[in-house]
């Protein structure tokens, strides 16, 4: 149940044409079971749609999933879309089939954390919680 602060709100989204959302749904469920309120946008969203949804829902963090190999273009594009809307303070985390070499580039582009198939679930949950906490000292 609720502890001291209200549940953190997270947006889980899949940018681009990739329709494989098993990972995104798995993370959404895991976050739900860890006490987060998870807004799921479904598959095949544009970076602009994801940014607009995140702003309307006033989420504390965004989680992106991509299994198609387009993460180097799409993940930074979400950050760019947030920037355009003046909301790039919302932290963005990403996961999927992502080669080690790409992780450096994604982090440089502003992705807070990058998860790959080997990442332990608890690490992912902790990363989301930390991102929310750092972004929202007031608790929303």
């Amino acid at each position: 149940m609720n502890t001291t602060h209200p549940p953190y709100r997270i947006l889980i989204a899949k940018p681009g044409l990739d329709g494989h959302d098993r990972g995104a749904k798995f993370i959404a469920r895991a976050l739900r079971d860890d006490g987060f309120e998870v807004v799921y946008t479904g598959i095949r969203r544009t970076p602009e749609e994801i940014a607009a949804a995140a702003i309307q829902e006033d989420v504390a963090a965004i989680g992106l999933s991509s299994l198609s190999g387009a993460h180097m273009r799409l993940f930074p594009a979400v950050i760019e879309a947030l920037k355009q809307a003046g909301c790039d303070d919302i932290p963005v985390l990403g996961g999927g089939v992502i080669p080690d070499d790409d992780i450096v580039g994604l982090k440089k582009a502003g992705i807070v954390q990058v998860f790959t198939p080997g990442t332990p679930l608890q690490d992912i949950l902790d990363a989301f919680r930390n991102a929310c906490r750092n972004n929202n000292p007031k608790g929303y």
């Binding site: 998870v38 799921y40 602009e48």
Partner: peptide, 25 residues
């Protein structure tokens, strides 16, 4: 757990870029 999965927005994403459609889950 107090957690929730809010999935109603999926059916309304066609309006995501319309600033005159305000969806809140």
């Amino acid at each position: 757990t107090g957690g929730a999965l809010l999935g109603d927005r999926i059916r309304m994403m066609g309006h995501a870029l319309d600033r005159d459609v305000v969806v809140r889950s």
